[in-house]
Design a protein around this nucleic acid. Structure first.
Lengths: 198, 198, 198, 198
DNA sequence: TATGAATGAGATTTCATTCAT
DNA sequence: TATGAATGAAATCTCATTCAT
């Protein structure tokens, strides 16, 4: 009516690739990588399986492309971290930024966390491991005591846990996020002091 | 004839069920549940797939049986926890005992952690979730601040992280375990101090 | 009637593997390897595709197994040839025996001849090439003139041609076979004399 | 603008059709017809699959067009042969000319020889068969003995074999060609002497 | 206590082909 | 003279499961 085309199929123009990525990530996160078939993805998009193969060479490639798009901020964070002095302030900032990065790509990280066994065998497995190592390197002081090293790792993991496990705890989402961040920052702070809070 | 049997097949006597569980857990943990086929398990055991079906009704049942056998200690721990007073000393003991339970069934927990997406859809998914909730209930004080609640969860998660992520950190295994335990106990301790009671 | 079972499905007992090989070779020879699908083979046998995979690991394996079964006589012939003196009488006997071997596995050789491009990329490609080289070695005198070497190769090829091209020539099958054999023997004979028939 | 075009894409001007034929033949000969996909051809030419469909209606049509272009000399040869007297001299000349024709379109004939099963089902299959029959008719004397008929067919086949099998024999290419031709001429010569007329 | 033989469902992937632009 | 986007059909292969023996 009024000249514009019916919207049903129209919006599919030029953005199919993006839509595939979106739906795939959603389903991968919900059901796991292996249990999500290309048939299912295609049906959700109302295209044929073959259309997926026009945009991506393999199933794995869909995941890889999503991964690369969404983890760029973490790559950047590591890059930034490497160029900062190894001060407490830096570490605290890393934790803060990491928390943001996680929030920005929550479904992907949920997926990575819940499908580690699968991811390990995929091409992104190594990339992910590298990134985790990078994060550890910029936040851990190799001369610190083992206990303090554990604190730093625990800080990172607390952020991870915060995203998923915390869903089962009652409370306002934003407040929970803040509480999680506080605990994580506490941990790196204690690690820096070389001793738990006095 | 008239002598002792050849040892090759001999030890397989009557314990096939157990051997299936062992091999299955090993492969599940290594490759993930979906990527591990019954053919593969059977080949590792040098029996036919059909033999697996003599001992277990379905693939899922193999996992269920392993799960039930190995998580009994945690069930017991929760039971014990419920009957203790909600003191700091109790919480510290829970952390200590949980650390032991995890160590005793490391491959299973590695599996559970790395295959959450899969597990969620399986029969053990709910059981596992229940158990996690049980653990939270005996370690978290519902009146505590959100931050302190996070600390308790973080303590549990630190133990988990300790089992897997810590592999990449250098240091003696036993020392690392102790460091991890120390940080976890620290966390519940801080959480306790934070409560109004203090 | 009379107590014995209905034959329809009964004969399928224990010989499915052989039946797969038979039908596969028939279809491969008739339509080519690529154009023959496993679905087609399965339908001809009234089993499911999966049944084929119980007996053979891949489509290629079906062909390989047929090839290995049917070309044993040629392998044997080469072995025999290597242990004979390089006399004219030997070469004539080789031609005679080769003719027999070809006749005994006509459909396979028809297939090999008509699907060379495909076969080259398959696992049997190299084996086949080796065998052809073996044949050349036992029939060609490396010191002979190029022309005489060509005569020997031509003899072998005449036998091949005889199996397929000759179908279009009218005449009694057995007589044609004899005529082909005669020409082939003529060729090696001339090659031996070091000069064409005077 | 105002200069000569960059050469990279320039030569592609107007001759795309020819380039498709060239690349297609090359790939068909190398890998076989079925194993060569239009995607592959298009990639080699750095155009899209759809571009192929601008120039040819189907995959088969590409092959047909190549076939028709390259086998014209043989068509001509048959035409010529039909108008000559059935003398030995004629037959020798046919062999010579056929050898030339084969050499001029070697990749096509290699393809035809190695993909007979495929070709048989294609539109060119019948055409090819007709041509072969034509060749037989002008070179075979229907009153000759079966043996002599075989000799003539063997002569043609020797030329074919010469193009491919001979690659594995050492020696100078041109010399080998001559040797092959000599044997083929020998064969028709002997066939002629065998006829009652002698 | 196991095996041999098979199945039905479904997965990923490839292909020739089409059509609006 | 081409391309970008898509399709329908089909292929190879894998898997959990069943059942007579």
């Amino acid at each position: 009516m009024g000249g514009t085309m019916d919207g049903t199929k129209q919006q599919r123009r030029g953005n199919t690739r993006q839509r595939i990525q979106d739906v795939a990530l959603e389903l991968f996160a919900e059901q796991g990588y292996e249990k999500t078939s290309l048939r299912e993805i295609a049906e959700h998009l109302d295209v044929t399986k073959a259309a997926l193969y026009y945009h991506f060479k393999t199933k794995e490639e869909i995941l890889v492309s999503v991964f690369e798009d969404l983890t760029q901020p973490i790559e950047d964070l590591i890059e930034w971290g490497r160029q900062q002095p190894h001060t407490l302030r830096t570490k605290q900032e890393i934790v803060r930024r990491y928390s943001d990065a996680l929030t920005g790509a929550a479904p992907l990280f949920r997926f990575m966390q819940e499908n580690q066994a699968t991811v390990r065998e995929l091409r992104i497995g190594d990339t992910f491991k590298d990134r985790m190592r990078g994060l550890r390197e910029i936040i851990i002081d190799p001369d610190a005591s083992l206990t303090d090293q554990v604190r730093c790792i625990s800080a990172l993991f607390t952020l991870h846990a915060g995203m998923f496990v915390m869903q089962d705890v009652e409370g306002d989402a934003e407040e929970k996020r803040k509480a999680v961040l506080e605990v994580a920052i506490d941990l790196v702070t204690q690690a820096d002091r070389g001793t738990p809070a006095a």
